[in-house]
Amino acid sequence: MKGKQCKNDKYHSYKGQVGKVADNHLNLEFYADEPFEKLTTYVTQFKIGDKKVYLSPVMDLYSREIISYSISLSPNLEQIREMLNELFAKLPTDATPLFHSDQWWQYQHAEYQR
């Protein structure tokens, strides 16, 4: 299998209250000393044929491993629910990770915040 890179439209989410939810200059070190200490997530868009597809992965900053993800044809809250449910099933019961995301609408939603 060989991928073809071509110019791609970037995903532009409604950003809500950017800069008002969290400090945009947070000094987050993007490495961790142990598994499940720091996790990060993002929604990215790519094309398969003529369809836009959205990927929402969760990366453990200790191992750089993707530990959870969801793929959807729409960047909606259900996609985030799927990603989180898979993540919660894998988290150790005593884990209290720092969970870093951008500030797009999905991450500002009350359900996600809970």
Rank of each mutant, 00 (worst) to 15 (best):
P35L: 14
E86C: 15
N85P: 04
H25A: 03
S74Y: 07
F88N: 11
L73C: 10
C6A: 09
I80C: 06
V21L: 04
T40R: 04
T93M: 04
D102F: 11
N24F: 10
Y31H: 09
T41M: 15
Q5D: 05
E65W: 14
K90D: 07
D50K: 10
C6D: 06
P57Q: 12
G3R: 05
A95H: 00
K20D: 05
Q103W: 00
K10N: 08
Y107W: 02
D9C: 12
I48V: 03
D9S: 08
V43N: 11
E37Q: 07
A89T: 07
D94H: 07
L91D: 02
Q108V: 00
S68P: 03
Q45C: 11
D33Y: 12
L73P: 07
I71C: 05
N85G: 12
V21N: 02
L26E: 08
A89W: 00
Q103A: 01
A32E: 04
V53W: 09
P57K: 15
H109T: 14
W104F: 11
E37I: 10
K10Q: 12
S74T: 15
K47H: 08
D94P: 01
K15H: 07
N27E: 14
P35M: 13
Y11V: 11
Y54K: 10
S68F: 09
K20M: 14
L61I: 06
E111W: 15
I71Q: 05
K4Q: 05
D9T: 14
W105D: 08
H25N: 06
T96G: 03
V53M: 05
L26R: 05
H109R: 03
F46E: 12
N76W: 04
Q113V: 03
S56A: 06
T96D: 12
Q79D: 01
D33K: 06
Q108P: 00
A95T: 00
D23Q: 04
E34F: 13
D50E: 09
D23P: 01
Y11I: 10
A32Q: 06
H109D: 04
N27V: 15
T41K: 07
Q5C: 09
L28T: 15
D94R: 03
I66T: 03
S70C: 08
K90R: 03
S63R: 01
P92C: 04
Y11N: 08
K7V: 15
Y112Q: 06
